[in-house]
Design a protein around this nucleic acid. Structure first.
Lengths: 102, 102
DNA sequence: AACTGGTATCAGCGTCGGCTGATGTGAAAG
DNA sequence: CTTTCACATCAGCCGACGCTGATACCAGTT
């Protein structure tokens, strides 16, 4: 407990387009071309975001010919979910705690 | 399912100082003065962040004389944890799905 | 009423980060 | 070997946002 939440990981997921990508990859493994179709974003833009996701360990790549497949790592997302769950439970347990005004 | 994750809520929690505040409030209800002591941040800065947290529904206020107590809402955090858990489970179930290259 | 102390609001500044166009690389197709 | 196409990298622009100082507000205290 009290592992606190990984700030860097949240910041990575706090971008709308990146979260969109992650949501799409939660359904199926895709390559950049598919993501361009699905999101309507430019290839350069997506490539930049995918770089961020890759460096944060959220996704992993698998080259396939001249394509590059991106797969979401469920354990990373699950770890984040657990951290938030711990935080929520901690808050519930400390429901009555209140520090006195100085 | 497929409720996807609340982007706005994540963005609110993606700031280091705000996440610090939330973590502190998960232990006990505090007023701004306490948060100034704990974080070392300026009062103005904290007040701005608390405003963001309040407008996002993450915390709720309770005036007590000239003090203002801030309490974390566990349900909001728990809901976010659930969304990430759903996402992780969805990714696990779709482990083998892969769209063919065009 | 005047004063003190806790908190909120506002305008300005500075920086971080997302988007873009141009360009490079590397692998298949011809 | 040349072309094509998927993808990565880089430099620059620009808007969003966090931090700050000044100031206003409001509740106790004297």
């Amino acid at each position: 407990m009290m592992t606190s939440v990984d700030t860097d990981l949240i910041r990575v997921l706090a971008d709308p387009l990146r979260l969109r990508i992650v949501t799409l990859l939660a359904r199926e493994t895709l390559c950049t071309t598919h993501l361009v179709e699905e999101t309507g974003a430019r290839q350069t833009n997506l490539s930049n975001h995918l770089r961020v996701l890759r460096e944060a360990g959220v996704v992993e790549t698998e080259p396939c010919g001249r394509y590059t497949y991106y797969r979401l790592r469920p354990d990373v997302v699950a770890r984040l979910a657990g951290q938030f769950a711990d935080l929520a439970e901690s808050a519930r347990n400390a429901a009555g705690n209140r520090r006195a005004c100085p």
